[in-house]
Amino acid sequence: MEGEVILLTGPPLNGRDEYLSEALEKASGESYAYYHVFEYLREVGKERGVKITRKNVLDFAINHQDLMNEIRDEAFERIRKEIDGSDRKFHLVSTPSLFRWGSGSVIGFTLSNLKLLKPDRVIIVLDDVLSVRRRIINDPEWFERFGNDPDNIKLTTLVMWREDAINHVKTLVHELKKEGVNVRYVLQFGIRHPPEVFLDLIFREKEKPLVYLSYPMTGHEEEYYHRVRGFYDKLSEHFTVLDPGALDDWWVVAEYDNQVAKNPDVRRIRIKHLLDGNEVDELEREDIEQATEILRRQLVERDFNLVDVSRAIAVYHYAEGVSAGVISEMAEAYRTLAAIYLYYPFKRRPSPFMEFYGMQNPSRRTMFRDEDEMIRAMVDEKDYWAKV
Rank of each mutant, 00 (worst) to 15 (best):
Y318H: 08
F76P: 00
I202M: 00
F356N: 03
K26E: 14
Y316V: 07
R365G: 13
H168R: 11
V211L: 07
A246H: 01
Q290G: 10
S31A: 12
A386G: 14
L8V: 05
K118C: 01
L7C: 10
M359D: 07
H226D: 10
L155D: 03
I52W: 08
F304A: 13
R135S: 09
V159A: 07
E286N: 13
E282K: 09
D151L: 14
Y19H: 14
Q298D: 11
Y40F: 15
G10F: 00
E77R: 07
I327Q: 12
R16T: 13
G102W: 09
D17N: 15
K55R: 15
G230P: 02
H91L: 08
E77S: 10
V322D: 09
I52T: 07
P96E: 12
T9P: 05
N258V: 13
G277N: 03
F239D: 01
E22P: 11
L199C: 06
T53C: 11
D243G: 04
A261P: 07
S310F: 10
V50F: 05
E25R: 13
L114T: 01
E381Q: 05
E39H: 15
Y384K: 14
K178S: 15
E207I: 09
V197M: 11
N113G: 04
F99K: 03
E221S: 02
R78N: 06
L126R: 04
V5P: 02
E320G: 07
E371K: 09
L275D: 06
L41M: 08
L117T: 00
V300Q: 10
S236Q: 08
R348D: 08
F189A: 05
K272N: 07
E4R: 15
L283E: 00
K382E: 07
D370L: 13
S131W: 03
F198W: 04
V44W: 01
D233V: 07
E163T: 15
L7G: 04
I340E: 06
R121Q: 00
F109C: 02
V93D: 04
A338Q: 07
I83F: 00
F203P: 00
T366M: 10
H174F: 13
T292G: 14
Y212N: 06
S214D: 06
W101Q: 08
H273Y: 08
I294M: 11
E82Y: 03
Q360E: 14
Q188F: 10
K89T: 13
V5C: 08
A291E: 05
F231V: 01
N278T: 05
V388Q: 12
V228F: 00
L176Q: 06
Y185N: 11
E381L: 06
H273S: 03
P350W: 04
L235D: 01
T157N: 14
F76A: 01
L213H: 03
V44G: 00
R192D: 12
K115M: 03
K46P: 03
F239T: 02
P244Y: 03
L98M: 06
G29N: 14
D233W: 06
V326T: 09
N361K: 06
R133W: 02
T156Y: 11
D276T: 04
K26F: 13
E47R: 15
P194L: 13
L116T: 03
E205N: 12
D303H: 11
G45K: 00
E373Q: 10
